[in-house]
Structure formats: C-alpha cells, structure tokens
Write a protein that binds this DNA or RNA. Structure first.
Lengths: 204, 204
DNA sequence: GGGATACCTACATTTTTATGCAGTTTTCAT
DNA sequence: ATGAAAACTGCATAAAAATGTAGGTATCCC
C-alpha cells in the first residue's frame, strides 16, 4: 500500500516523497524528516503507535501537517489522533485521487476528513436540545442552566449570586436542583456531567 | 442568489426545492417545512438571525440537516452555528457545483465545510504541546497535569489521592502548584482555564 | 558538592461548598 | 380555584477545598 502511494505521489509534479517507512522508529531517525510539509500516518503500527507518533512529531516539528490514514474509524482513535495533533483523518479505503486531493488540502491549511468523520467531529459541538415538554425526566430549568454555565466558568457562589442578581441562598437553591437532576454531589462532577450530556458548550 | 440556487437545484433530478424564503419567519410558518431533509441557512437575516433559526428548527425537527451558507467566517459565528446544531458551514462564495455536492453530502450524513473552517474546527481538539524545555514561564509538570485532568473529571481530593496512590496532602501539594501557575484560586477556575489553554482535552 | 526542580508528607486554619429544613411569590395548566 | 413547578429568601451544619508553614527525598546540571 505504502509503495503504491509512493508511486502515485511521485507521479504528481507538485509532490516530492521524502520517504516511506514501515514504522515510526526509522522514520523519526531520518535526517530529512523535519523538511516534510505533510505526513501520512497509520495508527496500528508495530512499535510506537501512530497516535504516539503524532505527539512525537508535533512536539519536534509543530508545523508538519499530519494526516491519519487508517482502518480504525472508532471515536476513540479518531479523537485521540486529533487531540494529539493530526489535522486530517482518512480511511485506508480512500481512493488514490482523493488521497492526493486530501494531501494537497492538508498542505494548504485544510483538514481532510471523510464525510462520516466530519459529522462525528461536528457532532461534538452540538448541544442537547432543550426539548419542549417531553422526555428527559428531569431536564434543567432555564435558571439552573444559567447557574451551571457559571459553575463551569469557575465562579464562586458569591460571584454567581451577584452576576444573576440573586442572593447567595438563591444560588444554593438552583445548585441543589442541578445536583439532584444530574445525580452528583459536587461542582466538579456537575460540570463534568454537564459536558458529557452536552448541556454546556465546550468552553474553548 | 437564492433564486439562482433554487434554479440550479431544481435542475438536479435528486433535489426537490420545498421553498426559499428571505427570512426565518415565513419559512417556519410553511406547512411543509418539516418535510425537509436539508436546509440551507444564512446568518445575517432580517428578524430572527440564522443561529437562532438553527436552534428553532433543531428543537422542532431535529433530523433536518442544516448547512450554514454565509459571508461570516469568524470563529464566533462558526462555532455558535455549530453549537446551535448546524451540520455544515459554507461561505457564500462557494461555487454552485460544490454547493450541490455539499448538500448531497449533508443529506448523506456528512458535514460539508470549507477547508479553512475544517481546520479551525479540528484545531479546537489540538492540545497545547508539552514543549521540551523552552518557553512557557510556568507550564504544568507531569504530575500536575494528571491532577488537573482528575479535577476536570470532578473527583474529590480523596478520590484523586487514591487514584494516584499518594496522600491527600500530596494532592493538595500539586493543586497548589496548578493554582499558582494558572493564577487561579479555585477548582472551577483551574479547569476552565485549563480548557482555554488547551491543557485539557475537551471532555466530551 | 552545591543548587534547582519535582515529588511527597504532615499539620493547622480559614473559606467555600454541600445539604437539610422552612417559608413566600408568581405563573401556568387543569 | 387549586395545585404543581419554578424562583427565590433565610438559617444552620457538616464536609470539602484553599492556603500557609515546614519539613524530607530523589534527580539532574554545572
């Protein structure tokens, strides 16, 4: 597969293949590794796996655009790779012409992904819908939602009280409601659970 | 512009245009609005803006795939739209053939985006690189990083102590370090700041 | 052989949080 | 008109968390 791609890429006049390796070790020892603009990386590799490989490269050469190309399409691997610093994520079944297009895109500041993976990524932003009147046995009230957001922001009860123009006890009242509905017993847990349940937007 | 797109889409035999509207109000009143598979939405609209529009639709018809198509390419608008529930984000300069392709992609479970926007989205996953020995006047130590992750998980000091096999005071020791380096005075603030600084992976 | 840094323990004190209990007001649906 | 739900207020107490002070041990660098 590697050989095939090398051949294809060498055939394009806007690509130069600096090297191809079966695993991270020899690749990272190559003298010209730092000259790469784009790097294609697998995950299931002998020795250091691809995700660790991404971290390693990112630490030394932060400007190389790394695109994952692997058979793994589970959330864990996808998000781990992206967190590690990969800019794109393709599956091995990607046809050659799309791969070439993807590499160009990566080199030009884009982030090539399969449509499916793109949707997974985008979905992490979606907040849970308030839902009119139905389902969730105990969804947060308007005010509770507001308090939860403040909690996530790291403000003290006193600060929240002031921001919301209510008393300290008022804040306590809402927090009680939040804890009960979320089934937690501390601020940290509430925020963590709020994130998981998409009640809070990722605070970035 | 709307008229142009309508004409183009009506020309495709796999599209049926249910309607096109200048703003949200009349669109949401259309009887067949719920039958849509895909919806194209602008942001700068008279009356209810596009982001609010997305929320409104998502609440009533969660299965409609909404693709933003707008001139706004600033982070705020992009992420607000995605948080509100949009599955794709295009710019108005998108040529017709790509737009059609994007709408098909959206209908088939994909998330069309311009390469630039895709990179912005992916970048939110990237964690700050540990950095060998240089810069950041006070970056967290290995252990502090671990503790911060536990804090973000919502665990109590006691739980963290057990998980890390150190004493309660050991946990306190590291938390001190974190607070000082992050210039905060509470758990919530530390987690919030850790997220902003990309020290923590978005906990989704 | 220092000196700096990370890692850890222990103890004490003050602030915040978490919870229990009680009561008032407004709104909204039956 | 009645009742449930939401949005508060107050007071009290126990449990956590935040901070200050004071050590002790490794490791790495010059």
């Amino acid at each position: 597969m590697r050989q095939g791609w090398r051949a294809i890429l060498e055939g394009m006049d806007d690509f130069v293949v600096l090297g191809d390796y079966e695993n991270c070790q020899p690749a990272f020892e190559a003298a010209d590794i730092g000259d790469s603009d784009v790097m294609l990386m697998d995950i299931g590799l002998p020795g250091m796996n691809g995700i660790e490989g991404v971290k390693y490269i990112k630490q030394r050469y932060p400007d190389i655009a790394i695109v994952m190309c692997t058979v793994h399409d589970d959330d864990q691997n996808i998000f781990d790779a992206l967190c590690a610093g990969a800019v794109g994520y393709l599956l091995k079944k990607t046809p050659p012409d799309e791969l070439v297009k993807a590499l160009r895109e990566a080199a030009n500041g884009g982030s090539p992904m399969t449509p499916n993976i793109a949707r997974k990524v985008i979905s992490t932003f979606h907040q849970s819908v308030p839902a009119k009147k139905n389902d969730s046995p105990d969804r947060l009230t308007q005010r509770e939602q507001e308090v939860l957001e403040q909690l996530a922001g790291g403000y003290s009860y006193a600060a929240i009280a002031e921001a919301m123009s209510i008393s300290l006890n008022g804040v306590r009242y809402h927090i009680r409601g939040i804890y009960e509905k979320l089934q937690v017993h501390s601020r940290g847990e509430a925020v963590a659970k709020g994130m998981k349940k998409r009640l809070l937007r990722p605070l970035r």
